[in-house]
């Protein structure tokens, strides 16, 4: 069954959507969209370094994303504002990554595969890595769910209740780095943030609890990757952007329905 490239692609898409859903909710609640995007851009530098020294792309992406996210967190508030810092760090990382990749001779590297993903080329090994990543993110987020929610609402309340906000924030940063790394194959570093934010944002208009928002986001993400993948196959369009287009369609429909209903009531 796993021999079929469409089956592998579908399973990869489902995996990344599942991991992105609960995390995407936190990204939306905590207004970390720009942070997530910078983390994803940093991953491109990780990819370039991995290709240069010929080691695991996954490890390189996770490592560089984590280093970028941590240094930005440490520098935050010292001199520059967070979004400025993120803009500098994220964009210089992706630029440096692209420059480094251009130096690599011998192998012809398809840059687009890293920028917007190449889900149809997912191997069994990639699939395994994706699902291990999903497992890690799920365990982390479910284990820390309540403290993460509390820290999201108020770091001071969390401190007073005996939690360490820094530790909980690191759980988010680490999960983000992992989801970016496993998402490179599926939607690429440019679009992974879309897979985090759009399903969560769509779910917001119909959810009434944090948990239901996460579950609905997961359903929307999974439907988007299945529908996007199949339409890409049908119309011969790039897969990553097709998946994101379907997700945006969900967002548009749900927001419209929500506005329509609210006006009626």
């Amino acid at each position: 069954m796993l021999d079929d490239f469409m089956t592998r692609a579908t399973l990869a898409g489902i995996g990344v959507s599942l991991a992105a859903a609960p995390l995407g909710c936190f990204v939306v609640w905590r207004r970390m969209a720009y942070f997530g995007e910078a983390t994803a851009h940093a991953a491109m530098l990780g990819v370039a370094i991995s290709l240069t020294f010929e080691f695991s792309i996954l490890a390189g992406a996770i490592l560089v994303s984590l280093i970028m996210a941590s240094s930005v967190t440490i520098l935050e508030g010292r001199s520059l504002f967070l979004d400025t810092l993120l803009g500098v760090a994220g964009h210089s990382s992706i630029a440096a990554g692209l420059v480094i990749v251009s130096f690599i001779s011998g192998v012809r590297i398809d840059l687009m595969a890293y920028l917007i993903g190449d889900i149809l080329a997912v191997s069994n090994m990639d699939l395994l890595m994706i699902w291990i990543g999903v497992g890690i993110i799920f365990s982390l987020v479910i284990w820390r769910w309540s403290p993460l929610l509390l820290v999201t609402m108020s770091e001071d309340l969390a401190s007073a209740s005996g939690y360490n906000p820094k530790k909980e924030n690191f759980v988010i940063t680490l999960s983000l780095a992992i989801v970016v790394a496993v998402g490179i194959k599926v939607v690429g570093v440019l679009l992974i943030i879309a897979l985090l934010i759009i399903p969560a944002a769509s779910a917001r208009s119909v959810a009434s609890s944090p948990e239901s928002m996460g579950i609905i986001a997961a359903i929307i993400g999974i439907l988007s990757s299945i529908l996007g993948l199949n339409s890409a196959y049908l119309f011969d369009t790039p897969t990553g952007p097709s998946i994101v287009c379907v997700a945006s369609l969900f967002f548009f429909i749900l927001v419209t329905v929500n506005v329509f209903f609210k006006n009626k009531i």
């Binding site: 609640w29 999201t152 108020s154 609890s209 944090p210």
Partner: peptide
């Protein structure tokens, strides 16, 4: 706390 501002996107 003095105040608690929860992001509008968080349904709880």
């Amino acid at each position: 706390p003095q105040q608690l501002k929860i992001d509008q996107t968080l349904p709880i």
